[in-house]
């Protein structure tokens, strides 16, 4: 009969309309962005940042200025200068450190290759996306200081990945300690 489809459709929309008042959680699916936001997914990524351990971003920076990421970066948005000074890394080995580490995020294409090639787990992808800036060049060229973020923050945005990294690093430290002890034992027994 003509009109029965209309009545059915009208009933459906009436249900939707009333539902938004009666059961807003089920029917109102909108997340009102600036006030509410959905938790970021584990694999969400935007632009890279540098991980540091401890409290001091300068001393705890994991980067050893090996420049692998700079070479691998497809759009070449990373610029690194090696420092003359060396500093001990997490296993106690002396390593170089960068004096300059710049990433131009207006060039970066979020490919995550820098993260994959880094042998020192020093670079990770950030999920921060509210980066709009009135200064088109200066504001989007991030230097070492602005790139450095703590390992805790990394654990917060990439919990699984950080867990694996930490396990691996703990293993490295254990091995290094064992090696050292073995060497010491060998030295003492000689």
């Amino acid at each position: 009969m003509i009109g029965s489809g209309i009545v059915k459709g009208m009933a459906q929309t009436a249900k939707n309309f009333a539902g938004t008042y009666i059961a807003p959680r089920k029917y109102l699916v909108t997340v009102e962005y600036p006030e509410e936001r959905l938790p970021a997914k584990e694999n969400a990524r935007n632009f890279p940042f540098l991980v540091f351990d401890g409290d001091d971003p300068e001393a705890g920076l994991r980067c050893v200025a090996c420049r692998i990421c700079e070479k691998e970066c497809p759009p070449q948005c990373i610029y690194i200068e090696k420092d003359k000074e060396k500093k001990p890394d997490y296993v106690g080995k002396m390593q170089f450190q960068p004096s300059v580490f710049d990433i131009d995020i207006s060039v970066c294409m979020s490919c995550q290759i820098c993260v994959e090639v880094c042998p020192f787990d020093a670079i990770r992808m950030d999920t921060e996306f509210e980066l709009s800036n009135p200064d088109r060049f200066g504001g989007l060229l991030l230097d070492k200081r602005r790139l450095a973020k703590s390992n805790e923050y990394c654990a917060e945005i990439h919990p699984e990945e950080t867990e694996q990294t930490e396990a691996r690093r703990a293993e490295d430290v254990r091995k290094a300690v064992a090696k050292k002890q073995a060497r010491q034992q060998a030295a003492s027994s000689d």
Partner: peptide
């Protein structure tokens, strides 16, 4: 507003 409610939004 009403159209929004019908389409499950605010």
């Amino acid at each position: 507003k009403a159209l929004g409610r019908i389409q499950n939004r605010f």
